[in-house]
């Protein structure tokens, strides 16, 4: 069986440490040579991030993985997979994702003609500011760079101004004050040198966890025999999904240590950004805004059915209910 696989961002650890070894070594070996894989990534192919699953559904390749948030243009109900701030540690985030899994399965089958194989996290999307902030409320009136629709809406609800800046331009934009704050993974921010141009770090998942969904074209999936399907499903769970989640919490702790100097930095020199802990009032206020504005808007975009399913699954796990 030949599989053409398109991975997520080639420069990030999730691809380098987990995706690439799994698809190019682990799975072919486990199949005893029955599966052969050709692996590339969507950034190397120059694909628009919104096109990755569209083309997967059309059979342009067999397997694809990218951030689910990129695909919400075609499927607003998918925004419910990655709600900002409700999961503050990796184990809660995993419970949230597992509760959402049946919904995600249905969405991918309907919208993208594909079978979901795994959902793995990028490190949580935290806040870098080149401005004095002490709490979440201080974001009000600041210019913030965010990606993803729900995060942008959430920032708007907080009274911040969303500004669109390409990732590569963020350091310059922070330095010159084009934006005051920017949201990205703590590790990406460390390796891209954002600590040089920002002073304060608020390590709460304002941008959610950017879950990366691995999916296979449905026709391809159906063409595999039951044994092969079973093999792929168990292998991807034990050899890819589990290890990726296990390292997620450690990665966050390490990334914060590297950026702020609180603790050992295993990747290089520790930096001295000011750590801004979100207080309980902060979190409570944020949840209030989520429940009163952001989530009801989402339920309008996605439809009430999806809001009900969300309340019954993810909502139960994180203790948040959308008013109907």
């Amino acid at each position: 069986e030949n599989l053409n696989v398109v991975g997520s961002w080639s420069s990030l650890p999730l691809h380098q440490q987990y995706e690439a070894p799994f698809w190019s070594e682990t799975l072919p070996e486990a199949s005893g040579g029955d599966i052969e894989v050709a692996l590339t990534t969507h950034d190397q192919m120059g694909l628009g991030v919104g096109d990755v699953y569209r083309l997967l559904g059309q059979g342009v390749y067999d397997v694809a993985m990218t951030v689910a948030d990129y695909a919400v243009a075609d499927a607003p109900e998918l925004e419910g997979l990655d709600v900002p701030l409700v999961a503050t540690d990796a184990s809660t985030a995993r419970e949230m994702v597992e509760a959402a899994r049946p919904m995600v399965d249905d969405i991918y089958a309907d919208r993208f003609n594909s079978k979901v194989l795994a959902i793995a996290p990028y490190p949580p999307q935290v806040v870098f500011c080149n401005a004095e902030i002490g709490s979440l409320e201080d974001l009000e009136g600041l210019k913030v760079r965010a990606s993803g629709r729900m995060t942008a809406k959430f920032l708007e609800a907080l009274g911040a101004e969303g500004i669109n800046v390409a990732f590569s331009e963020v350091p310059g934009a922070l330095q010159k004050g084009v934006v005051d704050c920017a949201v990205t993974g703590a590790g990406s921010g460390y390796s891209a040198g954002w600590w040089e141009v920002s002073t304060h770090l608020m390590p709460i998942p304002l941008g959610g966890w950017d879950s990366v969904v691995t999916a296979m074209n449905m026709d391809k999936w159906n063409s595999l025999d039951a044994e092969m399907q079973e093999l792929i499903q168990t292998q991807i769970k034990t050899e890819f999904e589990d290890p990726a989640w296990e390292s997620a919490q450690d990665a966050l702790v390490n990334d914060i240590a590297c950026l702020t100097g609180n603790g050992e930095c295993p990747y290089g020199d520790a930096r001295d950004m000011t750590l801004v802990e979100a207080s309980e009032t902060d979190i409570a206020n944020a949840e209030e805004i989520l429940i009163s504005e952001v989530l009801p808007e989402w339920s309008e975009r996605a439809g009430d059915d999806w809001a009900q399913r969300w309340n019954a699954s993810v909502g139960e796990v994180v203790g948040v209910q959308i008013a109907q």
Binding site: G50, A73, D74, K153, N164
Partner: peptide, 22 residues
Amino acid sequence: WPVLANSLRNGSTANTPLETPL
């Protein structure tokens, strides 16, 4: 054409606060 057809079928809107219908 399939690009537009796909957007029509899914009622796709841009992944931005503007939610422009694609």
